[in-house]
Design a protein around this nucleic acid. Sequence first.
DNA 1: TTGAATTTTCAAAAATTTCTGAAAATAAAA
DNA 2: TTTTATTTTCAGAAATTTTTGAAAATTCAA
Lengths: 168, 168
Amino acid sequence: MELQEAKQQFIDTWGALGSEWGINKSVAQVHALLLSASNPMSTDEIMEKLVISRGNANMSIRQLVDYGIVYKKHIAGDRKEYFVAEKDVLKWAMKIAVMRKQKELDPVMDILREISKNTEKDKTSEGKEFHKTVKDIQVLTDQLEAIANKLFNSSGGDLLLKLIKLMM
Amino acid sequence: MELQEAKQQFIDTWGALGSEWGINKSVAQVHALLLSASNPMSTDEIMEKLVISRGNANMSIRQLVDYGIVYKKHIAGDRKEYFVAEKDVLKWAMKIAVMRKQKELDPVMDILREISKNTEKDKTSEGKEFHKTVKDIQVLTDQLEAIANKLFNSSGGDLLLKLIKLMM
DNA sequence: TTGAATTTTCAAAAATTTCTGAAAATAAAA
DNA sequence: TTTTATTTTCAGAAATTTTTGAAAATTCAA
């Protein structure tokens, strides 16, 4: 069927993109599967659709729930747990971005600040040069962070559009 | 020595960050090493400092040169090739971003556009829902791309700062 | 309680990615 | 040309990451 084919392509593409950017392929594929599903899915359905093991399915789902971009859904009269993806793109994209920033970028920024501080008083030209290199990275990152915060703290879905117009 | 320690920490941190974001650890470390070096370095010096093989060093350097963020430097009377990193943060950060966008994001966007087109005429509610999901991702990505282009095509180093002020 | 259904855990296997090192290719000097 | 220095390549080894699957833990109905 055509639609199922399109969904499969979406899942595969998403999985490959995830891999390239440090997100586990199965995690990305489960996310894509739930994004493209009309109804809540159980672990068994996810296992079957993606042809992955129970352990893998369980871990991947849990990670997505932890990220806050997939929700548990109880279905009356059914003991199994079901899962639904957050469908608002801006919402889930922001959550992924914020999560990765906190987990991976912020610790690096802390270390850079520390390195910057430790090399501040160095009087050798080698030391001064290195300090500038680190400081420059810091300054750029801080500026980017300020922009990101503005974007992420906004509630309006059309903020980005307004921003573009503003910039033109 | 204190400065050398700081440099080593910078190299290690950069390598770890690279790994988490899909950039080979050695590549990121060579980049960090050259960023923190005051003078051009030869392949042998890089091998020695990072304790990596000639093959690894050669491949990593070449990738950075291909990215356009490390330059070859000939030293008179010396047969060896030396390498220097682009020190302008905005310059190299932009090059990395543009390169990864072209190589990894653009092909995905093309596929999403194709999927979007292929599901446009679907009359089932399932098809309509999936089409909206894909379309939403596309729209957001196009908006982000427009912002990114604005940022990346600017020449002034303080553009980001101006932008922040504009947004406040 | 007990027991069946479901979820979670995690050691080991599989898959993937990265790295090595020696041989081949190339480039420059003699 | 021949020799020597340097760079490049790439098959196999090593390291890392991902996945499996069965046992343990948990949950809930009877």
